[in-house]
Amino acid sequence: MVAQNIFFYVIAAVMAFSAIRVVTVKNVVHAAMYLVLVLAGVAAQYVLLASEFLAATQVLIYIGAIVVLVLFGVMLTRAKLGEDVNLTNDYWYVGAFTGVILFVLLATSLLDHFGDEPLDQANASTQISGNTEQVADALFAPYLVPFQAVSVLLLAALVGAIALARKD
């Protein structure tokens, strides 16, 4: 368990650093690269949480598809590949204020409420192992209707994106 903790803190530190770099770095492409780091870290956290299917999905969809899409977006909008001094707007302090206060609020209430509750409640960990099969069972039996709804949503998003982006 100690090893897990060490891994967690290492990955968490990388993630926090990268996340902050995503919103502070002056180069859009670099921001995307830092985003990849954050997303990979999230996948690693999923593994720590024994959700290996979700971790694989995270890598496939986020890093494999979404980041590539974002990079295409950067390319197509001809953002400068070098540094861009004007990436932050004039009222960034409002955002910074909001972010900091938000974090303080979240942290205090979390620490206040959950204290040092362990992640695994009694016998929870045994149920979670072998996660992929469970996800499939859950997805196709009790959550079939939301699953269908998401399919329709993806279709709608597909049509919408094409309708927006095509030149006519």
Partner: peptide, 8 residues
Amino acid sequence: LAKRNAVI
């Protein structure tokens, strides 16, 4: 809230 670039 604070970034000007839509992609970011």
